[in-house]
């Protein structure tokens, strides 16, 4: 805040004034008007130079909050109410991805992940996320309400659980309301632009993810439908083509590569093409020999069906014949180069 147009006498008086006198001469208060004596002025420092009489607040003015500045010197009295606009943020937080990332989702999908670019504020997180139908109406009770949201420890990934009572068959909420997604419907997941990171910086622009609901998936993924492409060069990646889109979060934890001696190989995982391709690039070039991609049988597809059992199943059902243990194996060979 700067007061300009002071004449020589006024400038001199302010130059000679003590810090306390200057603070009385130019005071900024929160609110729309000059308050009573009980309310302190905003803390800051005062300075007088050729350009004018300046007040620099101890903390930046808060965008959207109203302030009133009051200048008094002799018979001159000026006041002004103002607010500041938020400074343009060069790097606001944003949504990096929504998983499942494909453009279809089975009617009985279990969950969605919203991956943010940095740690977000958890307070009221789910109020900023909406499932909209084709007519622009919000789908009510789509997700399990979780106060402050379900976050990963870094608070960059928000998990949205479709209401399991509406997804599972033969349960009261589903019988009454039906599933949140209807086969054939078009939907948008909208993450509001006012979603904020831990520092309070908002995204600014909403993020939209559009998808089409398809028939319910009531089939387990089958190991026989998975393909492994062995690396042809020592520095190449091994690529697993998955039987169908699988859960993005579980794919990062529950698929790995072991060498012939059962030791896990260090490397980087990439998940692409709508969570149907799992790619692993080793830290060190492959040594020739036999390797195996291990996958936990508990890996889930988008509807929570695991390799070893369906999400929504007859309790007496047995695991599929090709699932004989908790960990599934896809061997591959790296030839001598």
């Amino acid at each position: 805040m700067i007061v300009t147009g002071l004449d020589e006498a006024a400038s001199r008086a302010l130059r000679q004034a003590s810090a306390a006198e200057r603070a009385l001469s130019l005071a900024v208060y929160t609110g729309d008007r000059i308050p009573g004596p009980d309310q302190p002025a905003v803390a800051g420092t005062h300075e007088i130079d050729e350009s004018g009489f300046r007040f620099q607040p101890r903390f930046p003015f808060v965008p959207g909050l109203r302030y009133t500045a009051w200048f008094v010197l002799g018979a001159v009295r000026v006041d002004r109410t103002f607010e500041v606009t938020p400074p343009a943020v060069s790097d606001p937080p944003r949504v990096l991805a929504i998983h499942p990332s494909g453009d279809t989702l089975p009617e009985n999908a279990l969950r969605l992940y919203v991956q943010f670019s940095r740690p977000m504020t958890a307070r009221g997180a789910q109020q900023h996320v909406h499932l909209m139908d084709d007519d622009g109406r919000e789908v009510p009770l789509a997700f399990v309400p979780v106060e402050d949201g379900l976050w990963d420890p870094q608070r960059t990934r928000l998990t949205l659980l479709f209401h399991p009572g509406r997804v599972k068959r033969g349960v009261a909420p589903g019988e009454r309301l039906g599933p949140p997604l209807r086969t054939g419907g078009e939907y948008w997941l909208v993450v509001d632009g006012d979603t904020a990171d831990v520092a309070g910086t908002v995204m600014g622009r909403a993020h939209e993810h559009r998808f089409h609901a398809v028939e319910a998936d009531r089939v387990s993924p089958r190991l026989a439908d998975a393909r492994v492409a062995a690396p042809s060069l020592a520095s190449d990646a091994v690529v697993v083509t998955l039987p169908e889109p699988l859960d993005h979060a579980l794919l990062q934890r529950w698929v790995w590569v072991e060498d012939d001696g059962g030791r896990a190989v260090d490397g980087r995982v990439e998940i692409a093409t709508g969570e149907t391709r799992w790619t692993f690039r080793p830290e060190q070039p492959w040594a020739p020999g036999r390797y195996v991609v291990r996958m936990r049988a508990a890996l889930e597809d988008r509807a929570g069906n695991r390799f070893d059992r369906l999400f929504d199943r007859n309790a007496a059902a047995r695991p599929p014949a090709d699932v004989s243990s908790d960990v599934l194996s896809l061997p591959f060979d790296v030839p001598a180069h």
Partner: peptide, 14 residues
């Protein structure tokens, strides 16, 4: 004396 008041943003005082 005509006095006016303006908001000077981005000002730092060392």
């Amino acid at each position: 004396m005509r006095v006016s008041m303006a908001l000077a943003l981005g000002l730092t005082i060392g």
